[in-house]
Design a protein around this nucleic acid. Structure first.
Lengths: 151, 151
DNA sequence: ATGGATGCAAAAGTTTTGCAAAGAA
DNA sequence: TTCTTTGCAAAACTTTTGCATCCAT
C-alpha cells in the first residue's frame, strides 16, 4: 500500500502541523523501503538523498508519524524498534528463533483469540501486526528446540 | 515456583561453571522479586544486600542464566528486556497500551493458534509467555482507541 | 594452581533533548 | 510575522566489553 501524500499533507496542515521536505522524505522512505524498517535504515535511506538530514529529525519524525497514526512501531525480539506504514493489511508472523525465518500467517488464525478477548475481557486487541516466536520445521529437524528466551 | 539451589549448583559445577555468591544472590533476587524483572530491578535488589556488586556482573549473570536455561528473557513493548525464572507455568497477558493494565489469560485461549501453527506450518510456538497489546474495557469507555504503535 | 568470574571503567549502540536558527503557513 | 520544525551536539539510557584481580574448585 502506498501513501496518499496529498491527503496526508492536507490533514497535517489542518491540524496545525507543517509539511516539510524532511517529513515527506522520511514518509517516502518508509513507504519505499517497505515492510519493517529501523530508524537507522530510514536515516541511511534519506541521507542518500539529503546528506544533511539529521538523525534526531528522523527519530522525532518517526515518532510524530506514530502519534499521527501514519506509521506504526513494533519491538522486534532483539529490542530494536521497527516501523511500517500504518493501514497495511493486518498480518502476523511466526518467527523462528533459531534461523530467523518469518512465516506470514493469515489473520483468521487469530480470530478465536480476538473474539474471546473481546467477549470475556472487553479487550480490543491490536491486530495490525503480531509476531509469534518459536522454532520452525527445518530447525526442529536439526535440533528439538533452541535454548534461550521466551516470547 | 522456587528454585532448587542444590540441584542447580550441582549441575553448574558439573558443567565446569562456578557457583559464586553473586550468582546465588542474583538468582535469588529473580526468584524473590517474582514475575518479570528488569536487569536494573535485579541490580537494585542485590545492591541492597551487597552494595559492591557490579552492574556488569548482573547483566553477565542474567545472560549466563539464560544460556543455562535457568531464566528466560522477553522483550517488553517498550523495548526493555525482562527476565523471569524458567519453568514457570505458561502464562499470557493482555496489556493495555493506554493505562498499562495487564490481564492474565488462560493458556487454552491460544490452543487453536498453537494447533494451527503446528499443523499448517510445522512451527512449534514458544508458549512460555506472550503479551498481546490493545485497549482494555475501561479505557475504551473513555476513548475509542489509543493512537500509537502496534504490537 | 588453574582458569572462570568479578569489579571497574570505558565504550558501544540506540534514542532523546535543549537551544538557536531556519522555514512553512 | 508567527510558531513549528530542523540541525547540531550533548546527554540519557541500556547493555557490552577489556583487562587486571580475585576466588571457587
Amino acid at each position: 500500500m502506498s501513501h496518499d501524500i496529498e491527503t496526508i499533507a492536507a490533514r497535517l496542515r489542518r491540524d496545525g502541523y507543517r509539511v516539510t521536505p524532511q517529513r515527506q522524505l522520511i514518509l517516502d522512505a518508509v513507504c519505499r523501503l517497505g515492510g519493517h524498517v529501523t530508524a537507522e535504515a530510514v536515516y541511511a535511506a534519506v541521507r542518500e538523498i539529503v546528506p544533511a538530514l539529521n538523525q534526531g529529525t528522523v527519530y522525532r519524525t518517526l515518532n510524530f508519524f506514530c502519534e499521527q497514526g501514519l506509521v506504526t512501531a513494533t519491538q522486534q525480539a532483539d529490542g530494536l524498534t521497527v516501523y511500517e506504514l500504518a493501514g497495511q493489511q493486518p498480518h502476523h508472523h511466526l518467527v523462528c528463533r533459531s534461523c530467523g525465518a518469518a512465516y506470514e500467517i493469515p489473520h483468521d488464525m487469530l480470530a478465536s483469540l480476538v473474539e474471546q478477548a473481546e467477549a470475556q475481557y472487553g479487550f480490543a486487541l491490536e491486530m495490525n501486526h503480531i509476531s509469534f516466536f518459536g522454532c520452525c520445521q527445518d530447525c526442529r529437524r536439526r535440533r528439538p528446540y533452541p535454548a534461550g528466551s521466551a516470547g
